[in-house]
């Protein structure tokens, strides 16, 4: 798999506290990478480091194949658009002026494409209104519009739905999906709201205390969070044979337990098992939500 961003044991210390503690992650090309963690877990610090706003204390990262310590990393950064924490826009300029300014910073020869970006983020009708008079959602969209100047291959969005109303959240989500689908832009979205990310992410990285506790694809996460019945029996092998014969999907967890991904008729299963010399001990219905999965990953003791 090709990765646009990889980090290797990245550490960032602020005086005596560690914001990142050996963080290793992989963002596949073309993915929407949901970067999930509680407040203060280190999400923004990682994005700042990748953007070049801060230097890591130790460890390394690779952006489009170039190491963060390489002087040529600035060339890789030209392929990146980012919104870090708050949207970076000139408040005394209009949306169009902000984009023109970013075009100049990028050294783009013409202002072609500004109308398209404004349309894409839904700010084409803001006219002469200065960014200081924009609502939070509009500013957030303008920040994304600025990040989109130059048609970046990687978009880093730090909590892009923070403070938005429900409609604003939907708009941002659709925008990210459209960028990924239509422009093949790889997007790294950080959030502490897993439910929100689950509607768009193709891959996930779970961060806690400055380190990645797990990376997985959306399919793997779906499998982890599927509705199932946890079955306890005296012989898991006999259970497997029985479920195979019944054409039911399952996953063996131990010699005596398995998760069964179907609605089962308990008396039917029990009699089928007893004919194989196996006893059905317990059946517990499980419905692990994304949140509970996340809590089980990172532990639930220290939520802010």
């Amino acid at each position: 798999m090709e990765y646009v961003l990889e980090t290797n044991k990245l550490t960032k210390m602020y005086k005596h506290s560690a914001a990142l503690s050996g963080l290793t992650m992989h963002v596949p090309k073309g993915s929407i990478y949901g970067f999930v963690g509680r407040n203060g877990a280190g999400k923004t610090t990682l994005i700042r480091i990748v953007c070049g706003l801060q230097s890591p204390t130790s460890g390394d990262y690779t952006l489009f194949g170039r190491s963060g310590g390489d002087r040529a990393i600035v060339r890789s950064r030209r392929r990146v658009g980012a919104v870090v924490e708050t949207p970076s826009v000139y408040r005394d300029m209009t949306a169009r002026e902000n984009l023109r300014q970013q075009y100049r910073i990028l050294g783009l020869p013409t202002f072609d494409g500004i109308d398209e970006i404004l349309r894409l983020v839904g700010l084409e009708d803001t006219g002469k209104k200065k960014a200081r008079n924009f609502s939070l959602g509009m500013r957030q969209r303008l920040g994304i519009a600025v990040a989109l100047c130059g048609d970046p291959d990687l978009l880093l969005l730090d909590e892009p739905t923070n403070g938005l109303d429900p409609q604003g959240i939907v708009d941002i989500r659709e925008l990210i999906l459209r960028l990924n689908r239509e422009r093949s832009t790889t997007v790294l979205v950080s959030s502490h709201i897993l439910d929100e990310l689950s509607k768009l992410a193709t891959h996930y990285g779970f961060i806690d205390d400055g380190r990645i506790v797990r990376e997985m694809s959306a399919e793997e996460l779906d499998a982890e969070c599927r509705k199932c019945a946890r079955v306890e029996v005296t012989d898991a092998k006999a259970l497997a044979r029985t479920l195979d014969s019944m054409g039911i999907e399952y996953r063996i967890l131990s010699d005596t337990t398995a998760d069964v991904f179907a609605k089962i008729n308990v008396s039917q299963l029990s009699s089928a098992l007893s004919s194989s010399g196996c006893e059905l001990l317990t059946v517990t219905e499980r419905d692990e939500s994304l949140e509970s999965f996340y809590i089980s990953l990172v532990g639930g003791g220290r939520h802010e």
Binding site: G52, A82, V84, S88, V89, I105
Partner: peptide
């Protein structure tokens, strides 16, 4: 306004 970040992040 945070716009110095745009300059650095864009290389």
């Amino acid at each position: 306004d945070g716009t110095v970040r745009n300059k650095i992040a864009s290389g």
